[in-house]
């Protein structure tokens, strides 16, 4: 248990650093839209399956507000991460991961299989990015812009999330 706590703290720091020191510095432009690359939702996806949903929400707020400090956008990443934390438990169940099974504390690629991990992370990542741009634009007048940015950002973020899953090998 203690080991798992350490692993999650380490993952938190690693993902925040990767996000702000590398991914934030890469300019991605698609048809004149500047897009962000999202990797840090991986932290929320990989939290232990038995984490209470209240804790998921608060941890979502924590990682979101940490990134907001570096992105100068108070509340935007936090809003998206709170949402991702909220839907994580439901999306595990939706894609057939037994959340009560104690044998797989971490829903990682090695534990639940690449196919399931890919589907769960696609689901969470897409909604995470969508909520991010809703908070960013903060009005539904620009719904077209929100959708284009969401899809564009998802297309470039998803390979990064999968690559991270392939490189990291969490078995615990």
């Amino acid at each position: 248990m203690n080991n798992q706590l350490q692993a999650n703290i380490f993952r938190f720091i690693l993902l925040v650093l990767l996000q702000i020191l590398i991914l934030k510095q890469i300019p991605v432009e698609l048809a004149s839209f500047r897009l962000l690359i999202f990797l840090y939702p991986t932290f929320l996806i990989l939290l232990p399956t038995n984490t209470p949903s209240q804790v998921m929400i608060l941890l979502g707020f924590l990682i979101g507000i940490t990134l907001d400090i570096f992105y100068d956008s108070p509340g935007v990443h936090a809003g998206a991460s709170v949402f991702s934390g909220f839907i994580r438990g439901a999306s595990l169940r939706l894609f057939g991961v037994d959340v009560d099974q104690v044998k797989i504390p971490t829903p990682s690629r090695a534990n639940i299989g690449f196919g399931k991990y890919a589907r769960i992370s696609a689901f969470i990542l897409f909604f995470h990015i969508f909520v991010y741009y809703v908070f960013d634009v903060f009005t539904f007048v620009y719904i077209g812009e929100i959708l284009i940015k969401t899809i564009g950002s998802f297309v470039i973020s998803y390979p990064v999330v999968l690559a991270f899953a392939l490189i990291s090998n969490v078995k615990k």
Binding site: Q54, I57, L58, G60, F61, G64, I65, D68, I69, F70, D72, S73, P74, G75, V76, A78, G79, V82, F83, F86, F135, F138
Partner: peptide, 27 residues
């Protein structure tokens, strides 16, 4: 809790755009 946290986030966004002095939460 989810709704409260989202409300807090929304307030942060609105507040920051209006007052522009949330120095604690900026780089």
């Amino acid at each position: 809790l989810f709704l409260i946290m989202e409300l807090i986030c929304a307030l942060l966004v609105i507040n920051y755009n209006k007052k522009q002095n949330e120095i604690f939460l900026t780089s």
